[in-house]
């Protein structure tokens, strides 16, 4: 597997496991946060818009 002899070797990252995996984890979290906030924004808009549309239909 690439430049590592075994999977545990890969996880160990030559003794730098903490640093490498911590920074990859932070990056992953922020990427997911971007996607999540996009999705929440979309959902918030559509629920709000539908509610308003219904109210307008009831009034007219």
């Amino acid at each position: 597997m690439g430049y590592f002899n075994s999977f545990s070797d890969f996880l160990n990252m030559g003794g730098h496991a903490l640093y490498v995996w911590l920074s990859y984890a932070i990056t992953l979290v922020l990427f997911l946060y971007n996607l999540l906030s996009l999705w929440l924004k979309k959902r918030a808009f559509f629920t709000q818009a539908k509610r308003q549309l219904k109210r307008e239909q009831r009034l007219s």
Binding site: M1, Y3, M13, G14, G15, H16, Y19, V20, S23, Y24
Partner: peptide, 24 residues
Amino acid sequence: VVWGLVFAPPDYQQGNSYRIIYIH
């Protein structure tokens, strides 16, 4: 990510910690 973490060679000075470069 797979290429950088698994297949790229380690740095002769910093070892494997340089792999942070691929996200930094």
